[in-house]
Design a protein around this nucleic acid. Structure first.
Length: 292
DNA sequence: GATGAGCGG
């Protein structure tokens, strides 16, 4: 084992051979671009370009970690400047772990069923096929969405034919006896659903009383606006218009209230008022173009 | 001055 001094690691060799040089830089907008070269299943070389917008969080690094970053480098890196050298070090993004009900742990390979889906997908490669009526539009835009949507679940217990022939009529209660769980909002596609219509169909959060707030500073956050408008009533939704690339605000936002009166009050009170050294403009928003 | 993202392969 008295070996010759091999300074480079085996990993270096592999990288050199297989891949052209990877790139990693941050442009003037603060957008980081990472270019990777890799080899795919078919043995073809693939170039992967990822553009990562800067994070708006002020402090994403724990104090103790920040301290450590100031340590002088040692060993082979001795004398190099502080901070990760992108040529040798991969810096991971912060990963937020999201847990949700029904999350499948360690979900393995696709079931046989999956192949069917894939075949369907391939048959219409590049085409749009509605899952509900097989038309050439997105499911979300299906003209029969309202009538067919709830039936997807109910069908299973009913047999497709009947349901499709008489959609609006009333597959109704039968579904309940199928043994399959049907959420309350979906029960009784015909009559009973009218009562619960507010949740799912065409109405719902889309027609919440919404204000457009303009002339906000570019770093105004959703929370700032919640805070500002929350005093008038329950705020259902806040959207801040941002540049998708940079993450900077574009100077406007939408604030939806649950209660129209509260929204009106907010207009009266906030429109023309100063905020962040800017004069806010608050008015009713125009509904976004057709979205069903 | 400015009227939303993303879903769907």
């Amino acid at each position: 084992m008295a070996a010759s001094t091999q300074k480079t690691s085996w990993a270096d060799d592999v990288d050199e051979l297989e891949h052209p040089k990877n790139e990693d830089f941050i442009d003037e907008n603060g957008i980081r671009t990472v270019v990777e070269y890799t080899v795919n299943d078919e043995g073809k070389k693939v170039k992967i370009t990822r553009r990562i917008k800067r994070t708006l969080q002020k402090s994403i690094v724990e104090h103790t970690v920040a301290e450590r970053q100031k340590w002088a480098k040692f060993g082979a890196e001795k004398g190099k400047k502080a901070g990760p050298d992108r040529a040798t070090t991969t810096v991971g993004e912060n990963v937020a772990l999201k847990l949700s009900a029904g999350n499948k742990v360690g979900e393995a390979e696709p079931a046989p069923e999956e192949n069917v889906k894939q075949q369907l997908a391939r048959a219409g490669a590049g085409k749009v096929v509605c899952r509900l009526c097989k038309g050439d539009h997105f499911t979300a835009k299906c003209p029969y969405k309202d009538t067919l949507a709830g039936l997807e679940t109910a069908d299973a217990g009913l047999g497709d034919d009947d349901a499709l022939h008489e959609p609006a009529a009333a597959p109704a209660v039968g579904a309940a006896s199928s043994g399959k769980y049907v959420p309350p909002s979906m029960r009784g596609a015909g009559g009973a659903r009218v009562a619960g219509e507010s949740m799912r169909g065409s109405s719902g959060r889309d027609d919440l009383p919404t204000l457009r707030v303009t002339n906000i500073s570019e770093d105004t956050q959703e929370n700032d606006l919640r805070e500002l408008f929350g005093i008038f009533g329950r705020v259902a939704r806040v959207y801040v218009g941002r540049d998708r690339e940079t993450g900077y605000g574009k100077g406007f936002a939408f604030v939806s209230f649950e209660d129209r009166a509260a929204a009106q009050k907010a207009i009266d009170k906030v429109h023309g008022k100063g905020y962040d050294n800017l004069i806010l403009s608050v008015q009713w928003s125009q509904p976004r173009p057709e979205q069903r």
